[in-house]
Design a protein around this nucleic acid. Structure first.
Lengths: 212, 212
DNA sequence: GTTAACATACCAACTAGTCTGTATGTTAAA
DNA sequence: TTTAACATACAGACTAGTTGGTATGTTAAC
């Protein structure tokens, strides 16, 4: 039987390799994940692997893109998207992220892009660009909502939506690192709340204590 | 001739190995840095390496500690430490960090601890703990100044110094990742400014635009 | 002559990638 | 409708190079 049912679809085997590759690289990074690991996890042999990918770097590239697209789809379909008020939509996004991270007990599996970004930026320049693009797309998506919220709620406020979005990405990535290292989501969840607080202050939603 | 001039001092060879190891791992990470790389950079042979370190994991452990101590010394000796007013000292620290990162053109070489943290957290559990300790020490040091500033300037403000310090560490680490991936310090420097802005808002130093 | 501080040669395990084989289908000429 | 030619999707053995680590010197200080 044929696996590829349509020209644009991935074969079952390739999809399995990609998904297991993503899983392993999210956990152990690029170098510590071997091609044999991926093959074993996917139940495919070397021949199968190199039929679909011309090198290890190649599967990493496709994995980053697939992971990015997956995240982007999750966010596009997320319930907060339907919130009409732009500022509420911004806060809704933060709630959604907290939900998808899970409780303080369950640890994040982390972001593949963040995991690979540091490890391969200097050693695999072509992958670096792919990671950068993925980050910029995420930032751009958030920046749109922030810009809409600013226009509607505080047009005179002194902040740049794009910079704010990049700050958010940085906080999330840094916090994910802290989560891995501390084996807990506490700091990650706390930091998202602090970012929310920063937004509230920028939008003038919270009274600031006067200096005594 | 003897290299070790005093019982507590590192021999010249070991110091060289450590420093070159730090340099390489900061750049390429743990797995992509080979023992041979370090030996070549330090001008030492394998025999010399394994005389001082019982394994690659061992030099990584010592490298993390040495790097952490080095950073901690730099910060202890930094000029901002002499600032009397605690809140000014907090802001002075941010200025110091920006200075030591360098201009937007020169890219950061990054933080060794952050570089290794993600890569080894799952694969080398004992190194994970070392990284965690290093982060907590940094956070603790900053948290002290934040607590002093809070006590002096805004005792009623609604923030926890320790959490704020951990947010700062997260922002710095995440921003460093963005710097590597974008080959620019722009986001890193911008994010430090945004953190400063957040602090100002928490301390009630900045007028918040009213909603229109 | 014992020990610290290396140097050199070497090894076993691993790793990315290749090569050849093969089963299964597809296409199109006869 | 048979068949030859070709393509796709793997399997599995193999290889060349790398890697962390070891075993065995050698040298010089004490």
């Amino acid at each position: 039987m044929l696996n590829r049912t349509d020209k644009s679809e991935l074969s079952e085997t390739k999809r399995k390799l990609l998904d297991e590759g993503i899983k392993l690289m999210r956990l152990k990074g690029y170098n510590a994940t071997t091609v044999d690991d991926i093959c074993a996890a996917a139940g495919v042999t070397k021949g199968g692997f190199f039929h679909y990918f011309k090198s290890k770097e190649d599967i990493a590239r496709e994995a980053i893109v697939r992971f990015g697209e997956g995240r982007s789809e999750e966010i596009i379909d997320a319930p907060f998207r339907k919130i009409k008020d732009p500022l509420d939509r911004v806060f809704g996004r933060l709630d959604f992220i907290k939900d998808s991270v899970g409780g303080a007990s369950r640890l994040t599996k982390g972001c593949l892009i963040g995991m690979l970004a540091q490890e391969i930026s200097t050693t695999h320049p072509s992958l670096r660009g792919i990671c950068q693009d993925a980050f910029l797309r995420m930032a751009e998506d958030f920046a749109k909502d922030l810009a809409a919220a600013k226009a509607a709620e505080a047009p005179k406020a002194q902040f740049d939506p794009k910079s704010l979005a990049l700050l958010y990405i940085s906080i999330f990535q840094g916090s994910t690192m802290m989560a891995k290292v501390s084996e807990s989501n506490d700091v990650l969840l706390g930091n998202i709340e602090q970012f929310r607080q920063y937004l509230k202050l920028l939008f003038g939603l919270t009274a600031v204590k006067s200096r005594n």
